[in-house]
Design a protein around this nucleic acid. Sequence first.
RNA 1: UGGGGGAUAGUUUAAUCGGCAGAACGGGUGACUCUGGAUCACUUAGUCGGGGUUCGAAUCCCUGUCCCCCAGCCA
Length: 776
Amino acid sequence: MAKDFIREIIVRDIENNLYDRPITTRFPPEPNGFLHIGHAKSINLNFSIAEEFGGVCHLRFDDTNPETEDMMFVESIQRDIRWLGYDWGEHLYFASDYYEQLYQFAEELIRRGLAYVDSLSEEEIRAYRGTVTEPGKESPYRNRSVEENLDLFRRMRAGEFPDGAHVLRAKIDMSSPNMLLRDPILYRIKHAHHYRTGDEWCIYPMYDFAHPLSDGIERITHSLCTLEFENNRAIYDWLVDHLIPPPQPRQYEFARLELDYTVLSKRYLRQLVEEGYVSGWDDPRMPTISGLRRRGVTPEAIRAFVERVGVAKTNSRVEIALFEHIIRDDLNYRAPRVMAVLDPLKVVITNYPEDQSEMIEASYWPRDIDKEGSRPVPFSREIFIERSDFSLNPPKGFKRLAPGRSVRLRHAYVITCDEVVQDPQTGEIVELRCTYLPDSLGARPDGVKVWAAIHWVDATRSIPVEVRLYDRLFATPDPYDFPEGGSFLDNLNPNSLTIMSHARVEPSILDDPPDTRYQFERLGYFIQDSEDSRSDALVFNRIITLRDSWTKKQQQVASRPEKTRPRSAPKSRQETPSRTGETASDARARARAQNPDLQAAYEKLQTQVGLSEQQADIITGDLRQVRFFHQAMEVYPKGPALANWFINRLLPAWKDQPLDALPFGGAEFARLVKLVEEGVINTRQGEQVLALMMATGESPEAIVEAEGMRQLRDEATLLAVIADVLAAHPDKVAAYRAGKSGLLGFFMGQVMRVTQGQADPQVVKPLLETALQSDE
RNA sequence: UGGGGGAUAGUUUAAUCGGCAGAACGGGUGACUCUGGAUCACUUAGUCGGGGUUCGAAUCCCUGUCCCCCAGCCA
């Protein structure tokens, strides 16, 4: 079964043999920024679809704006897509390679009178376009001759005019309610150096022109883009239908990915980079692919995430928790466990001989992970533990080290805290003096309460490293939601980076490749920073913390009095007391106001025929409907039943076509309703008959006869059917009796199926309920 | 306000075109644990509102509400 609505469409298109070529998709980035996780969703969609359906996915750079684009971005984009694990094979394209073909398409439109050179200024064009509520005005240049347009356009290309002197526009409709169709601009003059074509061109196509035609040139079948391009589909279709041979590519839109606590828009990301709020496009806090890569997130996690999010048409904002869950899930299996201490507190083990030390063999993997391997960890009289693993006055629920308490040193001995050394001035804890239990290595000591297992490193043989702790870049779930006069930058999290410069890691890591991802036990997942880490000055990035139910609980205690609020405050809504535009009901009311016959019918149907206001309203919006209804009344004067069938069954089934096109009249329709009302056939059968009448024009009686339709309401027969159904689903029967009353619909459905829709549901229902209630 | 889209647990997303509203994440509780991790169990919570059709509606009909996109010579 198809996973989402787009795949559903593709499956249907394939079944209908719509295309003369394999399914072909494309990922069309503009090389003016780095790819981010939102792009990963689109990349995954396009490449996965191509793979699933045995097609191909092109990588095409939509480079139509020389002012913002750069080769550097082309390279980074390719690197990122490859790193994510996708392969476009030989299908690397550039819209800039199509400039000549696109130009020829433009001349073709001019020759066919479908495009013209407009010489209005930018401001005038804007003014002439109108607004969303008012139609635009046609440009005085709109009716230039083909010859003049061709001449002007060629001279535009030749560089005879300065920027902005002319544009090429499609001649569509300046009063279209769709703003994009108000003679969209196809080409503009830009005397700018293009990173690929150099100075060869001084006119450049607009996205709305270049994109659909590039899809056409590449014989794309399904052009997938995000929701904000829904309005652009009209011009997409206009262009490919005029210029591309069938079967043309078609555009489908899905919701772009939005993530809590981050921004996913190139404009904002660029601002963060250019104004120095982050160290670059690949800053590990950035949601860019390169940022996530440097942070240590794997491509598999990113792909798993975008797949879990799904594809739909609802604007949505995914919780960061889902992404974090998937990152942890991925790393849990992948990352060997080692020990590091971020904020060291010295511990002296007073009963461990000063001149002694040992190497403890410690497994890289916890019991629940099915992997082998271990490393030696040095242990001696002086070690470091995490400062936060000790508390002078342990709060309730604190399970770690405290005066007089014992804890397990992970993989090593149990120690007991005997003495706390504090700085006499500041009171700061500078050292713990503990004793260890020599017999506790790999064994549980008798009669000692061991509160927890904590991580540690050897004081002298551990490696000093810098550790960078990253937190979300923004402090609020929706950074775009900032106060009036502010900026999204106001929502930046001031603590998104914490540098631990005195951290220490066990020495075993020196033997590993520098891109090894670790779990530092009890702390989180870490990887060496690919840019800043040097062999004599290691730098680690925290990829993600471990889930931490202890601090979570602590925080809850701290914020207890505050009631949990909804994640985002409801947007302030404006009261719009103004009238709405014309709805369907307004249109019907207007039709009646203009036509006294309709108005008369509206009143008569209510007072004399007994229809509800709503029924009369719908029927009397259109004269043909009224006539049809009157014809029906003459044959079978049961108004309300007729109206129900007319409104709820006939109209929706016939949908968009005019009523006159129906291959039968009101009289036949009335006879169908009569068959149902008199119980000859049931509602479901009535619908089948209606469908056949619409398809064949046969009379209802003939169809009922031919199909052998009748209603089954013999109780003995029905009881037997019910017994069979119940016997076939003992588990469901038990569930129903246990209170799952929704299953009644399931059983009804089964009975209807067995009887091929002939059972009278009104007879079946009470019988079924009785059978279900009675214990066998 | 014209047009184009959308609305299912807190979040994201399913429901074989009228027949059992399901999953994951999150939240909660507990079990287990030499990681307050992982795992496991249980639990919480939903069809935007109002009418109608039907034995039966997330799904069909009517109606209302809310949200998003479009007035760049950006994409």
